[in-house]
Design a binder for these strands. Structure first.
Lengths: 195, 195
DNA sequence: GTCTATAGATCGATAGAC
DNA sequence: GTCTATCGATCTATAGAC
């Protein structure tokens, strides 16, 4: 029953988003044309507009979905009460969640400037919420005497930057497993904020 | 003797690069047109081609110049022999050099994918050289017992990512001086790699 | 829901006058 | 060294057939 035309049982939408995610990450939002995305999916450019009102919405939806997924996954994670153990959980969570979604992470950071002002504010608020989650752990640990940091806000930014940096060098099938990378970074994070 | 046309005493070239740097950082290479750059400088688009063979060369020259300047500045810096002091020097150097050139740093990282293969290799080699400089400090310190890190290569990548992250949140005239930021990050770096 | 066709705008780069 | 003018290509988005 193969059809070369017509309905695709509702799979075209996800395939468009998947193609856009990959192409935006590889070449950048501005450098990717709607025709390229359509070609990757196997439809004509006009068909994309059955699924998105315009290119900007396509970008925003990808970023919004990624940030919402990140926040939801962290919220759903079972977290130890102890600040030290909670910081380790955050470290390993951040590395593994981001490594498994390298394209989305890249886009969520690189394409902020291509969002309209309204869309930018929405994404920034979600990013801020995630940073706040880490800062809360640090604040708890400082209050309890487990951690000593010069400034909890800056320490949170520093830890996130350090951990997200894994995405720039890690390659699947390299010399280190994801778990080993987590252990290596946890060692550095733990010492960096230690009392 | 004001002239609205004709030679501008050799200042047009630098002004073109300055305008391109600013616009590429704000909107991204692919999103900026040669006409936009020309308009920022106050010339017509055709005039740009007296200074660059094409748009790609304009981008590459900006990135190459930035990386060469970074390497030259680090090489010229007077560096203590002691690994701990040398790591502090690197930390403060990296933060201040990069903060003072935020646009170029942003471009050198974000626009790598818009380089031709040959140009990409050239920039990557320079970046690698810079990473090696930091790794050498860590290796020395580990050998001397001053530092303990799980992996000198990864530690170098982690420190650079953490330090470069300052550019995402630091704003001139904010609550912290550049020197205070350096001290805060040095505290975290020092502890992260401490024996 | 996808197609073809196209409107209307903009792009990088070049040619030739001054 | 800069201008005006333009070529040929490409872009987003829409209209209307099927």
């Amino acid at each position: 029953m193969a059809r070369t035309q017509g309905s695709h049982s509702g799979v075209t939408g996800p395939r468009i988003r998947s193609a856009a995610l990959k192409l935006f990450a590889q070449q950048g939002y501005a450098a990717v044309s709607m025709r390229q995305i359509a070609s990757e999916v196997g439809v004509q450019a006009g068909a994309l507009y059955n699924y998105t009102p315009d290119k900007q919405s396509l970008l925003f939806d990808l970023m919004e979905e990624h940030m919402a997924g990140l926040l939801a996954a962290w919220a759903a994670l079972e977290k130890p009460a102890d600040p030290l153990a909670r910081l380790e959980a955050f470290t390993r969570f951040h590395i593994s969640y981001n490594l498994e979604r390298a394209d989305a992470v890249f886009i969520a950071y690189m394409e902020l400037r291509n969002l309209t002002a309204k869309n930018f504010d929405a994404i920034e608020a979600m990013r801020r919420q995630y940073e706040d989650a880490l800062e809360a752990i640090l604040t708890d640990g400082v209050a309890g005497g487990t951690f000593t940091v010069p400034d909890t806000r800056i320490a949170a930014m520093a830890v996130i930057a350090m951990l997200t940096g894994v995405n720039t060098w890690y390659r699947e099938g390299g010399r280190l497993s994801l778990d080993e990378v987590g252990t290596i970074y946890w060692d550095m994070v733990r010492k960096a904020v230690a009392a």
